[in-house]
Design a protein around this nucleic acid. Sequence first.
DNA 1: AAATCATCATGAACTGCTTCAAGATGAAAT
DNA 2: ATTTCATCTTGAAGCAGTTCATGATGATTT
Lengths: 196, 196
Amino acid sequence: MTEFSKLKAHIQKRHFFTDSEADDFCQNFKLTRVKKRQFIVQPEFTAKNRFYVVQGSFRAYVIGDEGQEHTIQFAIEDWWITDYNSYIFQQPASMFVMALEDSTVLQINYETEQELKKRKHLYESFFRVLAEHTAAHMARRVILNLTKTAEQRFEFVQERYPEIVNRVPQYALASFLGITTEYLSKLRNKRVSPKS
Amino acid sequence: MTEFSKLKAHIQKRHFFTDSEADDFCQNFKLTRVKKRQFIVQPEFTAKNRFYVVQGSFRAYVIGDEGQEHTIQFAIEDWWITDYNSYIFQQPASMFVMALEDSTVLQINYETEQELKKRKHLYESFFRVLAEHTAAHMARRVILNLTKTAEQRFEFVQERYPEIVNRVPQYALASFLGITTEYLSKLRNKRVSPKS
DNA sequence: AAATCATCATGAACTGCTTCAAGATGAAAT
DNA sequence: ATTTCATCTTGAAGCAGTTCATGATGATTT
C-alpha cells in the first residue's frame, strides 16, 4: 500500500468520495520524510502546513515560562497534526512539532487547502468534519484535565491510547498529563511492585 | 435591533452572505427564552440543539466523581454554546448547560443544521469556520491549563474576558479555572489589601 | 571501546492548592 | 417580616504533586 493510498483510505472511511475525487484530492498533498528530532513546526514561524501521519510519530509541545515542556498533542499513523492556532489563523506558532522517530507525512499547505475548500462543496465538507472532530477531541481533553487526578488521567490514557503510552518517552507522556517525569515514574512503579 | 438581526450581523461579520442568504439561513433558527437556572442541555439526553446567545449568559459544566462541578465553558451575548461532543456525534450528553440569568437564545437543531450544510456550499463553509474557531479556542484552553498556575490563569482570564469574570458567580469561575471557590477567594483578596 | 547524552528511578524536603469547619452577607421565597 | 438559600470569606490542617539531588541504565556518537 503506497503512502497516498493510506490517505485515500482515510478519506473514504468517513466520506463519500468517488475514487477519482479522492485521487484528485490527494494530489494536493506532498510526501515528506522526517528524521527523528526534526521539527515540522517551530515557534515564531507560521505553520504553513497541516500534516497527515503515514508512518511514525510526532509530538506538539510548548515551552513554559520556566523552560518546562508541555505536550499538547501526540500523533501516530492515521492522525493529523500541526499548530492549530497558527495554521488556521496563519499567525506565528507557539508550538514545536517534532518527530519522535523517523517518520513519513503527507502535508498540505494553507493556500492549497483554501483552494480545495473553495473548489468543491465535498472538500469543504471534509475539512468541516475534520475541524469538528478536532474540537470535540480538545473538549474531551479539557474535561479530562479538569475532572481527574494525575493518577486517573494516567490510567485513562493508558487504557484509551495504549499505542501512544507504549511508544513515546516517559517525560513526553508526563508533560502531556500535566505532571513531572519524576511523579509519573513514581505512579508507574507504585502499581507494579509495592514491595511484597 | 431584533433578535434575528443580531444573528444576521454575527454571520455577515465573518462571511460573505448576501442579505437574502443571511435571512434564509436565519429562518432555520428558533427564538427561545430561558429562565435563570433552567437547563438547555442535560446529561443522559442527547443535545439536539446548538445555541446562539442573543441576550444573557450560560454555563456548561460536568459533575465529577465526588460531585464537584467543573465548568467547561461560559457563553454570553454573541457566543455559541452546547455540549459539543453530544451535539456533533448525537450521543448522550455529559454536560449540563444552564442559564446564569434570564436569557434569550436562537437555537438550531441537528437535523436542520445537516440540511443547511447539504443545501449550500456557503452554509457548509460557515459551520466549518465555526468548528475551526471552536477547536482553536479549546486548544488555547488546554495550553493555558497546562502551562500556567492557578493565579496566572485567573489573571489571564480576568484580563482577557473581564465581562465574564465580572458577571458569573465566583464558584463558577473557580471551577472554570480548575480550583476551589475558597482558593479563588484567597487569591482575589490577596491582591487587594495585603494589610497595609 | 570509550565517552557522551538521553531517559528513567528514588528519596527527602517543600509548596500550591484542597478540605473541613464556621461564620458573614445579601437575595429570594413564604 | 422572617426564614431559607445562595454566595463569599477566613483560618488551620493535610496531601497531591513539585523540586532538588543523585545515581542507574541504555542508546548514540566518536
